[in-house]
């Protein structure tokens, strides 16, 4: 049996660790609530933008030839990997990195320190590395959006995808690879969004009369292509942040629970050791007393 002092030191260490993890759990919980609200509140905006693009119909878009909507031969892919800046969020990053595509025609853009570290260690071709803070501000998103937009229009890459942990609920997140550019096959994307938001297609009633455009289709498509890319990316970041804080909250809760359990076990061990010491002292006293008699 270990000495009383060692057990006591361990109890103290475990208790202080559990205090730290509990504090981190509470911080993550409050951040999680905010991030989840942001992610859920901004879904309708994107859904309605997508619905307008669906209205413009594939034919009209192809006739107008906006580069963002034009599919082309996929020679080079670019994947934006969204990891976290800090650790202590369980297996969140590991499960995400397992789904990174490992073919020769892929180049990467990383967001978050952990994603950058992983991609550089794996010697993947990394084009740029961005960082996004917890508030997901528009100017940060705009920087990334401009960068990938230019890569695509300059013809350096033919497909832009984003890999992130999609937020389902506090316990579940799915690593998902979503295509950002080109935006063809838009009806499938829209249907996926509807399924995510639990909205039926009948809620969007169609009008059989011909659509009017003001000022004209080209300008509308040009405008909507840019803002859709921007807010699609923005939504992805919000979802990734919601997943991150949820995962951290759960990880820290588990850590606190484990520390409390360990502390309980150690306390039992400490009490046993103390009792053993007292009993042996009494036996010694009794033995010496009988000898003296």
């Amino acid at each position: 049996m270990k000495g009383i002092k060692e057990v006591k030191d361990r109890i103290r260490a475990v208790d202080s660790v559990s205090k730290i993890t509990l504090a981190m759990q509470l911080v993550a919980a409050s951040k999680m609530k905010r991030a989840q609200d942001f992610a859920i509140d901004s879904r309708p905006y994107l859904l309605h933008l997508a619905e307008i693009i669906c209205c413009l119909s594939e034919k009209k878009i192809q006739k107008n030839m906006h580069p963002f909507f034009l599919p082309r031969e996929a020679k080079k892919r670019c994947v934006v990997v969204i990891g976290t800046d800090k650790g202590l969020c369980g297996v969140l990053n590991n499960t995400l990195f397992k789904s990174i595509p490992k073919t020769d025609d892929v180049c990467f853009v990383s967001v978050g320190r952990k994603a950058m570290q992983f991609l550089t260690r794996a010697k993947c071709p990394l084009l740029a590395s961005f960082s996004i803070n917890d508030r997901v501000q528009y100017h940060e998103v705009m920087g990334i959006c401009d960068f990938i937009g230019r890569l695509y229009t300059d013809g350096e890459v033919d497909i832009v995808e984003v890999l992130y942990q999609k937020f389902i609920n506090t316990m579940t997140y799915l690593p998902s690879l979503q295509k950002l550019l080109p935006m063809h096959g838009f009806h499938d994307v829209f249907n996926q969004m509807l399924a995510m938001a639990n909205i039926e297609l009948e809620d969007f009633r169609r009008d059989s009369r011909e659509l009017l455009f003001e000022p004209d289709v080209e300008q509308i498509i040009d405008h909507i292509a840019k803002i859709f890319l921007k807010y699609n990316l923005h939504q992805v970041f919000l979802e990734a942040k919601a997943s991150e804080h949820s995962a951290r909250m759960i990880a820290m809760k588990n850590a606190t629970d484990n520390a409390e359990m360990l502390s309980h076990e150690l306390k039992l061990e400490y009490n046993k050791a103390r009792q053993y010491a007292i009993t042996s002292e009494i036996i010694e006293l009794a033995a010496s007393a009988t000898e003296n008699n």
Binding site: I52, C55, L56, D207, R209, E210, L211, L212, F213, E214, P215, Q219, I220, H223
Partner: peptide, 13 residues
């Protein structure tokens, strides 16, 4: 522009 009920479908910037 002013829009009244029964307006034709419209998309505008």
């Amino acid at each position: 522009i002013e829009i009244l009920p029964m307006h034709r479908p419209l998309i505008a910037l």
